[in-house]
Amino acid sequence: MYKINKRQIFGFVLLAVFCMVPWVINNTYIIKVISNAMLYSIIALSINLIVGFSGQLDFGRSAFAGLGGYFSAVVFTTYHVPFIIAFIGGALFAAFMGALLGLLCRYSSFDYLTLITIGFSEICRKVFEQWYSVTNGSFGFRTSRPSFFGFKFNSQQSMFYFCLVLLILCYIVIRRITKSKMGRGYKAIRDDEIAAAYSGIDIKNYKMVCFIIGSFFTGIAGAAMVHYTMFAAPTNYTIDESLIMLQMPILGGLGSLPGSIIGASVLTLLPEVSRGFYLYRLLFLGILLVILMRFAPNGLLGRHGIKDQIMDYISERRARNNGKPDKTNAEEKVVTAHGRNHEG
């Protein structure tokens, strides 16, 4: 029989409280911001799959959000395809382009891959900007809200639930992927490519499949984002946007899925806290990144990240106060030290 542990109960309670948010808060602005954070969380999760789990530094993620978004919007608005087909189609289109890019990346290693992804995102941006007949160029493309079987998501509250359901679905699927054989393969590739190859992991195919899956989720989030704001403009899909998206999982912790959601929430909510902050946004982010990389390269919740360091410190203090070393603590420290060695 399936047993429910404490953690799951906590999760369900949290989820139930979160579902109440639109009923308690009437301010549509806040709901808008939270929905936006949820959509960015999906993108952060997909980036975490590519950067955090399989260790490929991808600087062109916003292009895939754009591909998914534009495809879905154009097909839905210009060709009047049912929403669900357009929506999934956008994600599949992004996945298809991801497969093309992955095909290129089969033959290239680290730096080249980063450069190719940047180049790909620049090409995509140019196409969005210049292909007037389809994308309406730099004026941006207008579309409408999603509608399922006659129900139209017009209000902010309904969009909130739409984003929430999408986030939960994507989270579950990505979590299942990372726990599967393939996910363990990604981690092996990240830690040591040569050792992974000797263990019989088909590195090139794994990387390509990783790109396809990641692009699918980025595309689905991009499509949802476009339908949510009812607008797509090429200025949303620049390298700077990619870098911001990349920082979300890095802040939360590479290799930690809840961390990605936290990182995405922090980075989407911070600029909304005060408009005056906008001027100093890059300065703040820059200092944050440098300090984070210096002291906790795996972010808040990653392996040996800030959370682990704090926990280590607390248990060390407790052990010292007790006068004898805690056995479980000692074991834990061996594990983290081991993990630390693998990063280098």
């Binding site: 820059g286 210096r294 990063e343």
Partner: peptide, 21 residues
């Protein structure tokens, strides 16, 4: 000695600081 991702991200941070300055 910290792999390839961390120095790249750190450099991005420096670029942000300089640009904002």
């Amino acid at each position: 000695k910290a792999g390839r991702i961390a120095p790249t991200i750190s450099a991005v941070g420096i670029a942000y600081i300089m640009r904002n300055a």
